[in-house]
Design a protein around this nucleic acid. Structure first.
Lengths: 217, 217
DNA sequence: CTCACCATGGGGCCAATCCCCCAATCGCGT
DNA sequence: ACGCGATTGGGGGATTGGCCCCATGGTGAG
């Protein structure tokens, strides 16, 4: 019965998605002739890392938005504990920051949940055998974005606190610096993002995925 | 071959979710002894409405976040064009505003994508036969929220434009009213939401789901 | 018919923001 | 050693925002 060549772990916070992916992986002939054995399915990032360390599977199917730990964090941990595991990320959001982070960290496959999944089925076998595939969808988004604004640490911190609804004064207190410095960071942020007010700043930040929405704002 | 008692339409912007749901519905014995026939699957709200008018199915499985038209809009249109269709909404977000809107509009079933889907499988047959079921998960969220702030039309419009990054002046021009009136709406908004600045307003609005995130902000 | 509430405006005050100007320190790479 | 950029801090000014005062209609509930 254990004649499957490959095994996998599925990580996604939606049970329906897990069920659908498990079905597709295990079905003989759809992706692999013998199907792919699903060793475990988990609903959060921490469990994902735990299962990776335990099973060291051939494949990890990973969702980006999960409780406890998101896509990039899990990817890094997976690399640390199981170098041979091929990591394929499925994402519903197409935030530029997120996508480029994933690619730079060295994800083996990247597909959109929104687009047709035939591309996913067709490319998975190649990925299992060492190839790498980033969906055209994301490549197009990346090259259509000539402005990947690079934020400094302080700017990122400031941005997050602005999104959390803190005023300049509160941010200054929180970071232990003067209000004027916060003001400077804020100004730099708005120059880099080419906006002129807080609401526009927030809108852009959310769209570009420059910040972490999971950090309960 | 057409011995299934019920048929359905699936609307979700993620192909994997559609595949998983279709599988579950059609599988004999899981939900219905003979399975449920899937007449169509669509990836956006407009197509969903079109297919509803065309097929008038027994069941509509609906996602809340979709391009072109979201959950509530599709629900209303479905009611208009096909009164007998049972509408069941699956959602990944648990924003209070959204949930209460759906329940008030009279959705027949409401389930969370994140929680286990056995509840979904078990309750669907009852829903097909006229019952109504809102997942405990959402009932708990609703009763834990004693403050359902009711916004007037103008306030909602103003809120949306604030979130879109418009200034008071721009909003005034857009709505054809004076800046002072916009200011008044803004003040009322902040009283109702118990915040004291735009950033806090945005943070709250996003968390409570008072506005439509799909309206590309 | 009141009464509450919404929507419409205006005056004014003070605080916060946006955006210029400026300078000092530190580290990093050429 | 020199420059570059990040970070820190300040002065000052124009604009906007948050919130108080006020009044006028309309509308729907009692």
């Amino acid at each position: 019965m254990n004649d499957q060549k490959y095994n996998a772990i599925i990580a996604d916070d939606h049970a329906i998605v897990r069920a659908g992916l498990k079905d597709a992986l295990e079905k003989p002939g759809l992706i692999e002739p013998e199907g792919i054995k699903v060793l475990a399915e988990v609903g959060d990032g921490l469990s994902a890392i735990a299962e990776i360390r335990k099973h060291r599977p051939h494949l990890l199917l990973l969702d980006v938005s999960m409780p406890m730990a998101g896509g990039v964090e899990v990817l890094i941990e997976a690399r640390r504990w199981s170098k041979e595991t091929r990591v394929v990320v499925l994402t519903g959001v197409s935030a530029v920051g997120l996508v480029s982070d994933l690619i730079e960290t060295g994800v083996d496959g990247l597909f959109s949940k929104a687009s047709d999944n035939t591309e996913f089925y067709q490319k998975l076998p190649g990925i299992l055998r060492g190839q790498r595939h980033i969906s055209e969808y994301f490549l197009k988004i990346l090259e259509e974005t000539p402005n990947p604004p690079v934020l400094t640490d302080r700017e990122r911190q400031t941005l997050n606190m602005i999104l959390a609804g803190r005023s300049n004064k509160e941010i200054a207190a929180g970071l232990g610096i003067s209000v004027k410095t916060v003001d400077k960071h804020r100004t730099s942020l708005m120059q880099k993002l080419k906006v002129h007010s807080v609401p526009q700043l927030i809108a852009r930040a959310l769209k570009e995925g420059l910040i972490d929405p999971s950090k309960e704002l």
